[in-house]
Structures are given as C-alpha cells and as structure tokens.
Write a protein that binds this DNA or RNA. Structure first.
Lengths: 253, 253
DNA sequence: GTCAGTTTGTGCGATATATGAACAAAAGTC
DNA sequence: GACTTTTGTTCATATATCGCACAAACTGAC
C-alpha cells in the first residue's frame, strides 16, 4: 500500500468515535482532542461531520453518540456468518446445561463476544455481543491465546503485571504463559473467579474444517453451584460435542 | 457549520462500513463502489485504510470486516447511560413475567434495541443490543412513532405500501397512522403477529423527568401462550410500573 | 466587575486527498 | 485462443483538509 492510499480523515474520525467508549458519554471538543491526541480544529471537524451524518448529537457544547452508531457494529454482526451459525447451538447448549453459553473471538488483547445465550444473570456486568473482556483472565481468552504462536501470545499479554480483577487473578505474565501451555495440552481452559468473584467458566476452542482456531465457546456458572474443579467433568463433554458439530460448518471468521 | 467543517473521507468510510451490513460478508472493491456509489478508486482507498487500521481484512481480492468494528458500537453502548440504567429493571421484569423484555430507541424508520433481558427464545431471529426492526410493525416502534408529531411519523413511514412480514402486517400507511392515534390515546401498543407469526408484544413509552419520550419498553410473548387481546390485562400494569420507576432516572438519550 | 485561565471558532498557507480517465490485469464468453 | 467485460491500479491535477496562530467567548474566583 502506498501512503497515498491511506485516508487520514477516516482514521481520525474512527478514533473520535472510540474515544467516547473510554470516558464520559458527553464530550466537548477539547475533551475529544485530549483523548484522541488530535488537534482541536481536527477534532471539531470530525465531530461536526459525525453530527451532520446523524452519528452524533450536538447541543452547542457537548457531543453525544446516537444509536445510529450501532449500524456500524450491526454491519459486522449481520455480515459475519459465525454469529448466525453458532447461535442455535448456543441456545440448545445453554438450555441443556442451564447456564449461559457464549462464543467470542480475539481482538488484540481482548475477547469480543459475538454471540451469547444467557440464562438468569450471574455476572455483575451484562455481557452481550460486542462486549469485551481482557483475554488473559477469561476462559475463552486463554483458549484463544493458547492457539497463537507463543511469542505472539506473550506480546499481547504484555510485560505485566496484569490488572487484578479479583484476588484470584493471575497477574504475572509468566504464570499466564504457563497456564496457556497447559490449556494447549488439555484442549480447554477453566477460570476460577479470576475475573469476578463467584464466577467460574470453562472454554474450548472452535476450529474450522482446516483445523484453524477461529473462536472460543464457553459456559459460565456460579461458583456456588459448581466448583471450578468440577467444571470439566460437568460441562466439557457438552462443549466438545458442540465444537465437533460446528467444525465442518465453520470457514474462517 | 461551514462546508469546510465537513470531512468527506470520514463520511465515505462510514458509508463503506455500512455497505457490508446490507449484503454479503465478503465484498470486492467494485462491489463496495457499486453499493456506496463511490468511485472505485475512492472505495479502494477507504477499504485499504480500514484494513490498515485493523477494521477490515483483505485477502487480495475480498474485504471482510473484523470484530474490531464492534468497538464502535461498543463505544455507544458503554457511553450511553440509558442501557445501564434500564438493564436491572429489565432483568427483574423479565424474570417476574417469564417473558423477554427489551428497551429500544428510534433511529430513522427503525427501532434499535439498546438493552434486553431474554427468556427462552421464541422469535426466529435473535434480538440483541444493536438489532434493528422496522418501526411501523413493532410494538416499540408504534409507541415511538406515536410520540412524534404526526407529519414526522408519516414521513418516516413513507408512502407505502409497507412490507408485509406476515399476513397480519398492516401495510397501508393510513392504517398505521390510525393505529398510532389509538396508541397515543391509550398509552401503549399491542402487536399481534405483524412481524412474525406466533409472536405478540406490548410496549409502553419511557419518558424522562420532563415528559419527553426517550425510549420504549416491551414484553414479547408467544401467541400460543397469550392471545393479543390478553396482553394488556396481563402485562400492562408491570410495564407501566417500570416506566413510572424509570421516569425520574432518565435524562435524554 | 475584573481578571486569569480555559475553551471554542476562524483564516490561511502548506500539505494531503479526491477525481476520472487511462492503463493493466483478470475473468468470463463463445 | 481471441473476444468482450469486468475489475484493480496508477497518475496528474483540481480540490479539500490540516494544523497553526490568533481572536472571541466563556468560566470561575475574588
């Protein structure tokens, strides 16, 4: 790609949209300039453009995003086959085991939920397609990181120490890397309250017909109902059965 | 706004992203140029930029969106207070009545789900935050359209005839406008299998402290369980109770 | 009310981007 | 295999955007 094939205004506008995610719902021009590192004049032009297109509202002082922004994510979810393919399997799995089941993919150092069948909620945060969690301490994240070449996984995890979401969170990158090796060996990952106290989960990789890992599938359960040590006995067969069924149905992505 | 305050490249890039929603998951440069009306050279530059930023993948022939696109919608959902405020109420309501409950807002002629608590699925399509349905034949859409000035609602509904999703769908704009008048009078809307056979729903408006309608709340139920005529008796009190509780908590948006 | 400290709006030269035609390369047709 | 048709890429030039510097408007304190 030649550098004239890069359109800076688009990149900046997308940075502006993402800036709203990391902070307040209402941002002034200067706020956005600070958050994005853009010049104020540029931030202003991006915001006015978004407002003109209906992606943002402007009350003369603050900008807010409008629901039209969701068209962009919707474009992905409706255009990507993976969510549609896995949804019926998730529904069935979730109903059979009486727990929430989800499928996610990796985006940088985060996992992104692309489909979910939820039972009565146990987590404090509400997960939905598009939700993000740190890969290093989520069961699906461990499975997806384990599928990468070691140096790549290490780079994504970073130098550490990792953020401790609970007292159980593994914060030492080496500890996580060791865990990844085990996950790679056994073919599944179990998380015992590393992300949220009271929540255990187990995940398996979803591979396509050529054996490439394209996503992860998990079941989450309250620790009070199922001890972490019992997760594999209880849920692994069902997870692996679904993974096996899905395998011929998945291309990449 | 002066015309130099508009960034054309950003507008075009967003058009390109949305183009993926309306068609195939894999699009060539020419496909995108056709769908968006952009010049092939410009479409190519937008796509290469999206690929460079990690929002798209390029295999040398086709482009596909990556999960990173979901960051944009996530920016809206996490930055907007409405979804967070209503979610606990939805969970409680859904559990109490044993049916799915949702909150949506209007975007053009479509409603957009911003929060949802789902029980076992009855609809053929899987609704989630970001999902869109035509406002004219959805219970929440009727409520939201009824809250607009008549000419505005009429403009959104369009000249008709409307698409018939089922034999029950009201396809004559005048019929829908008459329905809106009734909804405005009674303060709620009931849909009897106009969107999908076997599915009834009832919706009420959610107003903020100043009385402005900012969203709609609904309950959907299988027609086999609850006849459309029985929806109001059965669910209206609970819906109105939630609307009343939410009223002082809502600002706009 | 005044004043410093911020934030926002605007004009301008330098620079980057859009455009459409022309060319090159595939893909489809017979 | 030679044809047409479609698609991808390049280039020169007209145009739009960038970011700086300055001016204006707003804030909050006293």
């Amino acid at each position: 790609m030649r550098d004239t094939d890069f359109i800076g205004g688009l990149a900046k506008g997308l940075r502006v949209i993402e800036a709203f995610g990391e902070a307040e719902p209402r941002l002034s021009i200067s706020d956005v300039a600070k958050l994005t590192g853009l010049d104020r004049a540029t931030a202003r032009r991006c915001l006015l453009t978004l407002a003109e297109l209906g992606y943002a509202d402007y009350d003369g002082k603050f900008f807010t995003l409008t629901p039209r922004i969701l068209r962009l994510g919707h474009a992905y979810l409706s255009a990507t086959p993976l969510p549609h393919i896995v949804q019926p399997f998730l529904d069935q799995l979730s109903e059979a085991v009486g727990q929430s089941a989800s499928v996610s993919v990796l985006d940088g150092a985060e996992i992104v939920y692309v489909a979910r069948a939820s039972q009565r909620r146990v987590m404090s945060i509400n997960l939905m397609p598009g939700s993000r969690l740190p890969a290093a301490c989520a069961s699906m994240g461990r499975v997806l990181l384990a599928a990468l070449p070691e140096p790549e996984a290490r780079a994504l995890i970073g130098p550490g120490p990792l953020r401790a979401y609970t007292p159980q969170t593994k914060t030492d990158p080496e500890e996580v890397m060791a865990e990844l090796a085990e996950v790679r060996g056994q073919g599944y990952a179990v998380i015992d309250q590393e992300l949220e106290l009271g929540l255990c989960s187990i995940a398996v990789p979803l591979a396509d017909a050529r054996g490439r890992v394209v996503a992860a599938l998990n079941i989450g359960a309250p620790a009070a109902q199922v001890a972490a040590a019992g997760m594999a006995d209880r849920y692994l067969p069902a997870l692996q059965a679904v993974a096996r069924q899905l395998r011929p149905l998945l291309r990449q992505g």
